[in-house]
């Protein structure tokens, strides 16, 4: 293993970490702005020009707040909860291919931290671990509301993971691989998976809304019933971590959706750019395109949040178990039949 490899990977990890934190930071600002525009308001505009320093001000506020640990809370778990939520949110970016290989001094440098051959499963594992942060936090708070919210989060995530997993199976039947790099490479140019798997994509998207605890599935933090949900007892930067983790999760699931269904870094005319200008330019342009797709998804997350009211708990369970899972199974069967027929003839 040569030193350049290690330095390259280290740089990539650092940059990715920084990017996800910055995007999460500015998602809070974007959320408030989008909410404001959708409600005919202006949103934060006092801190800096157009309020772009608002996230910094919020961050400083979070750090300066008094930190309160409830007397009867389980101290260690209370501290581990937000950390775990943050950790699980951050490590998801490792397997996503952020662009085509760059060629530097004749050496290929992949814009992906690691191309493990079970990338899809890794993402699933990390996402399902994320719920432990919520559960541990809710349990350790020693508060009934937090506990109820933690239970809700757990049952919601488990229910929607089933449908999510089933919706992805149809995709895997099509692509024949679990490696995200290969899945993206197969969608070269215009052959995005969403064109072949529209139903699978809708199911996957609804499930990722539920997995990230975003509206309309934000039952774990529903103010009207549960005060603040699992983070009722949290204050200062621990609360900040939970809120931050939600936005990083949103970023990661947007990236996963863009990668799996919307062609990742692929864009029409990429070969043309590669031959006409240079392969490196085409690759960097691809990364830019990927980020544009991610931002579009993040905007969609926000747009939906300020449109649809929250589901009731029984509606949530009905939608998950009685609608999404049968649809996902039907999708697998149809995909299987079509592929069998296409291969036969």
């Amino acid at each position: 293993m040569d030193i350049n490899y290690v330095i390259g990977k280290f740089l990539l990890v650092t940059i990715l970490f920084a990017i996800s934190l910055v995007i999460a930071m500015y998602s809070t600002y974007a959320e408030r702005k989008v909410a404001a525009f959708l409600q005919d308001r202006l949103g934060p505009d006092r801190a800096g020009p157009f309020g772009i320093l608002q996230p910094l001000a919020d961050g400083v506020k979070m750090f300066m707040k008094e930190e309160i640990v409830p007397t009867n809370a389980s101290k260690w778990l209370f501290m581990i909860g937000p950390g775990l939520a943050m950790l699980c949110a951050c490590i998801g970016t490792a397997v996503i291919p952020w662009g085509q290989d760059l060629t530097i001094n004749g050496k290929a440098f992949p814009l992906q931290v690691t191309d493990i051959n079970v990338g899809v499963l890794y993402i699933f594992g990390v996402v399902s671990l994320g719920v432990y942060g919520v559960m541990i936090g809710g349990w350790a708070s020693n508060n009934k509301y937090s506990l109820l919210s933690a239970i809700r989060a757990a049952s919601q995530n488990i229910s929607y993971e089933v449908a999510m997993g089933l919706s992805i199976i149809a995709l895997l039947v099509m692509t024949n691989t679990l490696s995200l790099k290969e899945i993206v490479a197969q969608q070269h140019g215009w052959h995005w998976n969403v064109l072949y798997q529209p139903l699978g994509f809708i199911i996957f998207m609804v499930c990722s809304f539920a997995e990230t605890n975003r509206a309309p599935f934000d039952l774990p933090e529903c103010e009207t019933e549960l005060i603040g949900g699992y983070h009722t007892e949290y204050s200062s930067m621990k609360l900040g971590f939970y809120l931050f983790a939600e936005y990083i999760n949103m970023f990661v699931s947007s990236a996963v959706m863009a990668t799996l269904y919307f062609g990742g870094y692929n864009y029409p005319g990429m070969d043309w750019v590669a031959t006409l200008v240079s392969p490196n330019t085409a690759a960097l342009l691809g990364t830019l395109v990927l980020f544009l797709k991610i931002f579009a998804f993040i905007f969609f997350f926000m747009w939906v949040r300020w449109t649809i009211p929250r589901f009731r708990y029984d509606q949530l369970m009905n939608l998950g178990w009685k609608t999404l899972i049968p649809l996902a199974i039907a999708n697998i069967v149809i995909t299987g039949i079509v592929i069998a027929v296409v291969n036969k003839f």
Binding site: F37, D40, W303, W306, T307
Partner: peptide, 13 residues
Amino acid sequence: TMSHFFKKSSTIR
């Protein structure tokens, strides 16, 4: 909601 995105905001600074 999207139609409201392009409406003039009624805020007075």
